[in-house]
Simulated assay, not measured.
Amino acid sequence: MKTKDAAPDEVCTTQQAAEILGISVSSVQQLVEAGVIEAWKTKGGHRRIPRHAVLAYKSTPSPALGSRAAAGGVAPRELAADGLVSIMVIEDNPMQRALYERQIGAWDLPVRLSFCENGYQALLQIARSQPDVLLADIVMEGIDGYEVVKTILDDPKLASMQIAILSGLTAQQLDERGGVPPGVVFFAKPVNYDELRGYLRACIAQRLRVLK
């Protein structure tokens, strides 16, 4: 993002953009960081977003939070018969799985949750069901979450899947593994559940908008 000045009536803060789009501030920030919505920083270090860019994103049916579908020309899949957005969570810690289930379940989102204990199980289930959103831990025995994510990114048929990494690894440790892939969102553990809720709401809204 560049640093420049603009007329105040032509730009939005992240809070104003979030209100226009009906999503969380953290989701707007993720859209900006992913390059989906144009933005810059003021000399004081504050994000500013052109109002036309916010309105353009709102009116466009296909942009995704980190999605690779548009670039690959992949047609979006239809929702399942129950009309719910499917979310798969890869997490080997049973207590953490229970926490995710309780937290996400309390948000009253139109989603169907499934859980995998390891990367091998996840790859089998992804091949069968192709979830809309994947939340992946990284450090696991055998096939880890990073290998699962790379496998998905290499498969054009899975280009519409939204992917987020949830990990306790440091930035340096992630860089040693190749860094966070383009189009993938990263949440550091312990997870900020307000940010995760905002991310999932944005994914759901985008998914439903694409299929209108």
Rank of each mutant, 00 (worst) to 15 (best):
K58Q: 15
K58L: 13
S59F: 01
S59K: 11
S59H: 10
T60L: 13
P61W: 01
P61N: 02
P61C: 02
S62N: 13
S62A: 13
S62H: 14
A64N: 05
L65I: 15
G66C: 10
G66D: 10
S67I: 00
S67W: 04
S67V: 01
R68Y: 02
R68Q: 10
A69D: 11
A70N: 14
A70R: 15
A70S: 13
V74P: 00
V74S: 08
A75T: 12
A75C: 05
A75M: 12
E78S: 14
L79Y: 04
L79F: 06
A80K: 09
A80M: 10
A81R: 09
D82G: 09
G83Y: 01
G83W: 03
V85R: 02
V85Q: 03
V85A: 05
S86T: 15
S86W: 07
S86Y: 00
I87F: 03
M88S: 08
V89C: 12
V89P: 06
V89A: 08
I90W: 05
I90P: 04
I90R: 01
E91N: 07
D92V: 09
D92P: 08
N93H: 12
N93V: 14
P94T: 03
M95Y: 11
Q96N: 08
Q96H: 06
R97S: 10
A98P: 00
A98H: 07
L99P: 01
L99Q: 08
L99G: 00
L99W: 03
Y100R: 03
Y100D: 08
E101N: 12
Q103G: 00
I104C: 06
G105T: 05
G105W: 04
A106Q: 13
A106V: 00
A106T: 14
W107E: 06
W107D: 05
D108Y: 07
D108N: 15
L109W: 09
